[in-house]
Design a binder for these strands. Structure first.
Lengths: 206, 206
DNA sequence: AGCCTAAACGGACCGCGGTCCGTTTCGTAT
DNA sequence: ATACGAAACGGACCGCGGTCCGTTTAGGCT
């Protein structure tokens, strides 16, 4: 008999060999561990290979480059964060009204980005989060803007609203210019207000 | 006699030795030449040292790091651009009304950044232009916003307006997402409009 | 169980960024 | 002109990211 797949294609087709999958896990754990214990800059490819007990070549085959590895580690926390947005408690999650969700979203994004700033920077180009990750925040922002009745070129407008929350700009403001976090956030809220077109804070319903 | 300075402190005090100054010139020219002839990625520290006919150590003493060297090369064009803004022809230079100047400013910034995108990226952290360079655009933007009667936290607002024109964000939009340049620019104008508070295009005076 | 091939493995090897330190040069004071 | 200290020089050296290729292994087929 030749039934090549008993379970109807559940996993991605060019199925990953068992040892490969195992090593991917080992490497990711090793990398994460190094980050937590000694900071991102301590994550050298040799170190993570040694910590995982595999050869250096394997690290590169799995993750392309050091930046790729960093991005993969980031992806972990990013995924958890996405879950909070899509199905967590309001106001970040669904349920609150769009404006409150937008504010919570900005706040959370600000803090998360700052928290991972170092790793994002070390992930270099891929560190603006893998394209998929960026797509998610962009999409969610477009959705909230649409919900708030904003008209215009939403993809571009969403990018403009997100830009000040990206790591390099935040870095500039907080680390280099020394602006306090609350001021940066307040500024972002003001920006959102201007983009959405709310005139000052709403008088809180009735 | 001990008059240590005949000309009353004209130059920066810890005066640069003649050979040092000469080598700085040689190195900058060499680097610029390499960039023009073979692109930024061809600029290796050994190559630029060899091209300038000096030792590798000298390159590092003058420019700290590869990123520093890149930033120095960038600084050249940046300075010329600043001159255009401060004393060039309108609408970029002084003379036009603030709104037109702001539009010209954004347009010019967009094009310049895109032109040097590769080098900016390779200049890494220092590539958001040396702090001095960033200060200039930030200051000019604040000035124009103030001139346009915008109130609020101008430093933060200026950053927000400039952020979508920074290299990483532009890169994302143009190179990765493939948005045409004109669309990105139009989006930026719309952003400016919302921040400044103009309702649609002004009816062109009377 | 034994075979066979595609895939994964691992570590020697290379180039480049960055450091270090013994040597040379500049500029001044005599 | 000479001497001398500070500053600049240059290139050997090191660690790390990334590649290459000969060897090993997973896992389907008979």
């Amino acid at each position: 008999m030749s039934e090549p797949e008993l379970l109807p294609l559940l996993d991605s087709l060019p199925t990953e060999r068992r040892d490969a999958a195992r090593n991917r896990e080992l490497l990711l754990d090793a990398a994460q561990g190094l980050v937590e214990r000694h900071g991102p800059h301590s994550v050298t490819m040799d170190a993570v290979a040694a910590a995982a007990g595999v050869g250096k070549g394997t690290v590169f085959r799995r993750f392309e480059s050091r930046e790729g590895l960093m991005a993969a580690v980031l992806n972990h926390s990013e995924t958890e964060w996405q879950a909070q947005v899509m199905s967590g408690a309001p106001p970040l999650g669904p349920g609150a009204d769009p404006w409150d969700r937008l504010l919570a979203f900005g706040r959370s994004r600000l803090e998360t980005t700052l928290l991972h700033a170092e790793m994002i920077r070390e992930a270099g180009r891929a560190g603006m989060r893998s394209f998929a990750a960026y797509s998610f925040v962009a999409m969610h922002t477009r959705y909230l803007l649409a919900e708030l009745g904003v008209t215009g070129d939403l993809p571009i407008l969403a990018t403009a609203l997100l830009a000040p929350l990206e790591a390099p700009i935040l870095d500039q403001q907080v680390t280099i210019e020394g602006f306090p976090l609350e001021r940066v956030y307040a500024g972002w809220v003001d920006l959102a207000r201007r983009i959405v077109g709310r005139d000052a804070d709403p008088p809180e319903s009735f």
